[in-house]
């Protein structure tokens, strides 16, 4: 039962990461790409971490996975912020595809 749940979450996580990647490659401008990359990827990573935690079933591993997710979250937040800021300074958002 737990295995099944983990599998579903793993697949869902992979889907979100994949979607984020597709978004990064296909979306028109920096802001949309950042949106895809940060949101979808972080959700995907969370799902993968959770599923791995379920499979491992140990508190230490679970906490480590949570830490990994939090660090990735922090890193992607800051880098997305910096990229958006840099991008706005150079070329303000117009709503039009660049």
């Amino acid at each position: 039962m737990i295995d099944l749940l983990a599998l579903v979450m793993l697949l869902a996580g992979c889907f979100f990461v994949f979607a984020g990647t597709v978004g990064m490659l296909r979306l028109p401008d920096v802001y949309c790409r950042l949106h895809a990359l940060t949101k979808a990827d972080n959700l995907g990573l969370l799902l993968i971490c959770l599923s791995l935690a379920l499979l491992a079933g140990r508190l230490r591993i679970t906490l480590l996975l949570l830490l990994i997710w939090l660090l990735a979250l922090l890193a992607s937040t800051v880098s997305a912020h910096l990229i958006a800021r840099h991008s706005r300074a150079r070329r303000p958002p117009t709503g039009e595809p660049q």
Partner: peptide, 10 residues
């Protein structure tokens, strides 16, 4: 952008 509070938190 290093002066941003977000970066300092990081």
């Amino acid at each position: 952008g290093f002066e941003l509070p977000l970066v300092r938190t990081l």
